[in-house]
Amino acid sequence: MDNTVEKQENIRKGWDGISRFFRANSIWMLMYCTGCCAIELPQAMTSRYDMERLGMGPMATPRQADVLLITGYLSLKTLRRIIYAYEQMSTPKYLVAFGPCTLNGGIYYDSHAVINRLDQYLPIDVYIAGCMPKPEAVMNGFNDLIGMIKRKEANGWKKYEQNKDWYRKNQIQALGELRIKDEFHE
C-alpha cells in the first residue's frame, strides 16, 4: 500500500518537474499598460532585446496568458479590471509589477484615486525596479521570474488561493463592491 502511494507521489513529482520546464520556457504575457512603464516593453520585445528568445510573447486575452504585467500606477477603476483579469487567468499564473508605483505609490503616493500597495490586493511574484525600469531591468526581471518558476518559488497564485479571504477583504475595502462572474453564462 505504502509502496503504491510512494510511486504515485514520485510520478506526480516527475510530472511536476517536466511541466515546470515547459512553463519556465514558454511564458505568454498579458500586458495591462496602465502607466508609463509600458513604454519600456516595446524595446524589450523587438529586435534590440528580443524577448521571444526566452520563449516569451504577447497574448490577446487573460485566458491564454500565463503572466500578467502591471506597468505602473493603478487607479481604483483600473484595479477592478486587473482583479477581474487575474481571476480569469488559468493556473498557474504569475504577476509581475513594474516600478515603485506598484510598491508604495511612487510619485502618486498622496493621490486619492491611486492605490499605494498592490500586494494588499493581489499576490506579486516579481517587482522590477526603476522609474521607469530600463529594458535591461525588464529583461532581468523576466529572467528572475523564469528562475523562480524553475526553482518552484513563483507561488503567488497558491498564496492567493490560500489567503483568498484576506485578499478579498482588502479588495472590497478599496472598491466597495466586487462581482466576479462568468458574464456570458447567466
Binding site: 511541466s19 515547459f22 512553463r23 520556457n25 500565463d66 493556473t91 498557474p92
Partner: peptide, 8 residues
C-alpha cells in the same frame, strides 16, 4: 505548456 495548465 498549454496542456499542463488547468483549463476553464
Amino acid at each position: 505548456k498549454a496542456l499542463s495548465k488547468t483549463g476553464v
